[in-house]
Design a protein around this nucleic acid. Structure first.
Lengths: 198, 198, 198, 198
DNA sequence: TGGTAATCGAGACGGTACGTCCCGTCTTAAG
DNA sequence: CTTAAGACGGGACGTACCGTCTCGATTACCA
């Protein structure tokens, strides 16, 4: 999202065709839904979008960067946030919304594919770190910090640890191919997170 | 270790050359160490082992199955087990040994590569589930169950949940490319596992 | 020199910037000298001239047409003509001058590139025929015809045949990548041309 | 034909599939006939031959090398040679046969394409020099040398020059896109060659 | 002199081919 | 009959240019 890749430094994104841009993201989304992350090659996405391969490579350095953007579009932060004044309620909202999105569309497949890609493509790893981890963490961390301020959590509660726990368990559930993430899982996550320290 | 693949039923594994078999596992291990999991293609492993590609495909259905076996050899269950009569001591021993192995050699890279492969190759997924999850889980579960029997853990302690938590956090640490697994992490894991329910 | 392209009839060439026009020809010349005819793509010439690609395509239908013009500028007819009253002297002057030009700059590379391009681009073939053959032939034919009139050559001397012979041998020497055209070659050409019929 | 390219040094041509080899040469021939030399891309030839691209690149370093071999197959030296005891008869036979082949199939197109390719691909240039010039020259030179021995040509007749003249005029006729090579042209060539020195 | 139209640079665009890599299967010759 | 060596069809990679097109920003003509 941040367009920080060196090789795109000179590009002027305002010149990019909005139409093509959307066609590419749409095609990428559709391809994953239809045939899975691996089969959603740059070549296939380009063909489906009615676009030259170069047009994709012009704006994204690799498949991972493209799909970080697709993921971000599918999982808008706004949809996960809520101000409830109550930690459990806020986490419940965030996670239920997230899992709903995972169940509705290909976002989970994309996340899993990106994690896989990241293992041997440093560029992909960086794209993920920047696009998914850094930005998204606050969605969980912030409510916890607020809760401490409000006195709903002990002062020494380890927010980072709780946050890692939640993300780790979600990743594990997706990666190990167990049942999809459901609302029961939300309660388990919240329960475990709140117990994790303090 | 050998002969778990159903599809090789008709073959006569006794005819497999023990020498070549070891050469292949050694080459596979060396390749991952030297160039990483992705670059350790079947082609490259065969070349390094001085073996035809077909010889690998004859005995393993795919790269993942081969590396499940390499992983199992690198992380022998025996090295992780200990009978201490104390849950914390047993978990500490198991996890410290595991992390030591991860730090010494390519086992962690292999695990991560396998997880990645599993995402779009059902065969790889199955190989992992059979080879890594099913068998390995007992190493954590058993000590916990014993601890319940000994009264060191409450009756209603959720061993599965605690076990998932440990594995999930290990995977997350490896996959997210944070710092390697160290002895501090062992203590964190034990602490979190023991808090996770009850 | 300008405005021979029929297809530009509707344009008003007087609006073409003389400055840009020369910058393009200069860049085209420089590119061939520096990197050869093939590498002197329209894209590269435009970049070197500090000009948009479209500006080139606006005034020349294709690369060949552009280089016919560059060639014509590098090999001005005036430099090859002389009125000596003696066929051998006139041919010698013409050919020596031509070879000197070939040795000095990229004209030979351009000629060879154009011949190559002409083989599968009818447009290039036509550009060559119009720009190089039709106009240039007279430089050799005229002196021969004068020589016949002066009685220095037999009445039945086949000027066309002699002319073809000279051009063919020059092309062959350039195309076959043998030694460059030198003054010895001039004498060979004249000798062979004068023997070719009669 | 000589398989002297460095990068093929390690290959063992006896392992090449004769069937595929012929399919490739056939497809290459057919492609030139059907769509011309330029359009006969390696990709298109591979597709038409029902072969992977790699299979072509495995045995030929580039398109030019492939087509040198196609040309050699289309214009077998045996078909051009004859022992007549008479120079004119031998040259006439050679050239008439050659032109017949040019008129029948795509050999001329290939020659022209190769000459064009040679201008900016040193590899192609070398393939041509080795495959076409070095080997083929003897077909013209030998009869001339025999004629000198038999006293049918003066001792000081310059065979090289005569040979260059013939080849140059053939190339020129093909390259300049004039009328195809016919039997009249054979007589012109012989006449000019015999006059060219001595 | 201000409007308007063409030209300009820059470069995005769909497309085609490139030459390389590796997959998993098939073939060959040596042992 | 097994082996190593590696050829094979296939599919995707990421790059290079092609020739066309779309942008604003000049520029030059004409009203």
């Amino acid at each position: 999202m941040a367009m920080t890749q060196r090789r795109l430094a000179g590009r002027r994104p305002e010149r990019r065709s909005q139409e093509k841009y959307e066609a590419i993201l749409d095609a990428a989304t559709a391809m994953v839904s239809a045939r899975g992350y691996r089969a959603a090659t740059v070549e296939a996405v380009a063909a489906r979008a009615g676009v030259g391969k170069q047009t994709i490579y012009r704006w994204w350095p690799n498949k991972a960067a493209l799909y970080v953007e697709v993921y971000a579009a599918l999982v808008p932060a706004a949809r996960l946030q809520v101000e409830a004044g109550d930690l459990t309620a806020e986490l419940r909202h965030c996670l239920r919304q997230l899992f709903q999105i995972y169940r509705e569309g290909p976002a989970a497949s994309i996340l899993v594919g990106l994690i896989a890609d990241a293992q041997d493509e440093p560029a992909a790893a960086e794209a993920i770190r920047q696009g998914l981890i850094v930005g998204r963490r606050a969605l969980l961390l912030e409510p916890m910090r607020q809760a401490i301020k409000r006195g709903q959590l002990p002062e020494d509660f380890d927010c980072e640890r709780a946050c890692d726990l939640i993300v780790a368990l979600i990743w594990y559930r997706l990666l190990s191919g167990q049942r999809g993430p459901d609302d029961d899982f939300v309660e388990t996550l919240i329960d475990m997170a709140l117990r994790s320290s303090g």
